[in-house]
Design a protein around this nucleic acid. Structure first.
Lengths: 360, 360
DNA sequence: TTGTAGGCGTTATCAA
DNA sequence: TTGATAACGCCTACAA
């Protein structure tokens, strides 16, 4: 047997070279036949058959690592978050985003690399480094607090990155929910019901989600032709103590017929509002209309559905993947804003009494 | 500038060669300094510092594919599931497993690769292929229906794999919940309360989770010194129609004082049992004790907590990672069985009336 | 202490 | 139509 001295299999795996030897052709031919043959090279049917047969006999399977090395395409999308991606407390997890991310990634032919221990530290401090993400073709970033320096280094190097959630950092590509339009729509809804004096309750910080809602609020008021009201926005850092039964009564007495509350991470504002109404013996929408600029916290899910809007987290994840894929293939970036679905709940209705604005 | 003509960065990613050029050393030295240097080669501190600095400046990260091709190690653990890992219906998801997987992977210094599109298909049928997991150092497999052929191919080739959930396939390493011991413990609990005639309700198939529970049931009976009862196990394929108010009444009349129900994917058995009791106007544990061999379905969570046991899914995920890590480092496999926590609920108590077994 | 050279399995470019 | 041959990025004897 004057065959080459190589053993037929090495480490239990057949290589293209093995197939080639069995089929009596060159390794290149095997690659051509078995790989896509994108070069459009013409190969005899008989040869192809021989190659295929040999491959099958040997149980040949291409080595993805080698393939990826040769094509310099990992088909890997990174997912990086600074907090644990799957915390024990499920409500705070990125699960809803991942639903969309996974679907769209599959659609586009990418696998996902989940970088672990971003918060915990795990095995050594160096794992903290954002640099690890470079092993993927591009990376999605979840969460608010990013190390701006590292991130910009990444971006400067031309590494494709998309932040989920509108980013305040310049030059960081992002996808985000369109809070402005969604909030404006809620205001419009209230205005159409006849409300003329509407109050926005928001947290007392400068986060984008908050200021976007305020912008949408003002936009909505203007679009509805409502005149600028001096104290249309109420800021609170401590909802529990600020938003009381007395507070609500006073607001209603002052002519306010509708209150829209920001959705916060903890849901504290909305929770406090609901509680305050309850303690005041008031009911929505009978005594006052209330709306929530976001989704209700899980533990209040059983309550009456609040009017407001839903943040399409899965859509956001999918949009982020699309944006990243676009960067990777050099296509123009798609729309970064994702539409929020208006939610007609049971907490808004016509104003309790004729509004007290001057007749026009 | 008599530097080599290569651009400092290619395609946005730095290679060892780039680092070497910047640091003014050879590529080997870079590999030595940055890689573990398992060869024990001694390198000047100053040189090492230069290399590290250059690497940092360039944001160098080793290419996983290349690394794997050369060594078969890249600190990546694969997660493969036959259904989508993040389905829209969160209740049926692998979330609880992922909590443990992520934590333990971080602990052990691994990142995770989530192989997507296993079910959806996505970009072509080949994505279906389990072979992609070879990019990682090893792989966790979730879900029941495995492509046995591909899986065994993988295992034969020495690729480390761990199935989450006890596997019926031979030679497939797995971690699983110890249903046998847990079920036996529930039976013991009932026996200690004084129950002598206990009924097991299970689904009518031959799945391991079911048969393990039955085995534990019989073990528990034997350990409690209860004599073998002819019709101690009731099988049903259609719980809704089989488990009715009349059925329950008949069982109680026949002397049964306790019923243990298998946890099924849909929770159908338990649901039917609870409903039947309700319709019969019976209450647990007053009229009959009932126990659930697993966790209650989410929509019944508000009900009275059933006695039974909890499946430690996060622990399972962590155990799977440990087992995989053990395989990777050549250590002996750790215990594959994870203990289920006994859950003392409100549905079991002393038998309704003096039991009717003959005096001993 | 550092560098040279060869190989891992695939793809891609040329010649033949 | 096929077959050498050179990357791809990294690791590791072995040589200097």
């Amino acid at each position: 047997m004057p065959e080459k001295s190589q053993p037929p299999l090495r480490g239990g795996r057949a290589r293209q070279a093995d197939v080639a030897r069995i089929a009596g052709v060159s390794q290149t031919t095997v690659s051509l036949v078995l790989g896509g043959n994108r070069q459009g090279v013409v190969i005899q049917e008989a040869t192809q058959a021989r190659v295929r047969e040999a491959a099958k006999a040997l149980g040949y399977v291409p080595d993805p690592a080698a393939r990826r090395l040769a094509t310099s395409q990992n088909n890997l999308l990174g997912v990086f978050s600074f907090t644990a991606t799957f915390p024990t407390a499920m409500e705070h997890s990125y699960y809803p985003f991942l639903v969309g991310i996974e679907q769209e990634a599959a659609e586009q032919g990418y696998d996902l690399v989940l970088f672990t221990g971003s918060s915990a530290g795990g095995a050594g401090a160096r794992r903290q480094a954002l640099d690890r993400v470079r092993l993927a073709d591009g990376c999605l970033i979840l969460g608010r607090h990013l190390p701006a320096t590292q991130l910009h280094q990444l971006i400067e190097d031309g590494f494709p990155v998309v932040h989920i959630g509108r980013s305040a950092e310049p030059d960081v590509p992002w996808v985000g929910a369109d809070y402005v339009a969604a909030t404006a729509e809620v205001v419009r809804h209230l205005a159409e019901l006849g409300h003329r004096t509407i109050l926005l309750v928001r947290e007392d910080d400068e986060a984008l989600p908050s200021s976007d809602r305020e912008l949408g609020f003002r936009t909505g008021l203007a679009a509805a032709g409502l005149r600028r009201q001096p104290k249309a926005v109420f800021r609170t850092a401590t909802p529990e103590s600020d938003i009381t039964a007395d507070w609500v009564r006073a607001k209603i007495a002052s002519g306010i017929t509708a209150i829209v509350a920001e959705e916060t991470d903890s849901g504290a504002v909305w929770r406090a509002l609901v509680k305050a109404l309850d303690e005041a013996g008031l009911r929505a929408p009978h005594d006052v209309s209330i709306a929530l600029l976001g989704s209700p916290p899980a533990d209040l899910a059983g309550d009456r559905i609040p009017t407001g809007f839903d943040i399409p987290r899965a859509d956001l994840g999918a949009a982020a993947v699309r944006m990243l894929a676009a960067q990777l293939s050099g296509i123009d970036r798609p729309q970064p804003l994702v539409h929020c679905e208006f939610r007609l709940g049971m907490t808004t209705g016509v104003p309790a009494k004729a509004d007290n604005t001057p007749a026009h």
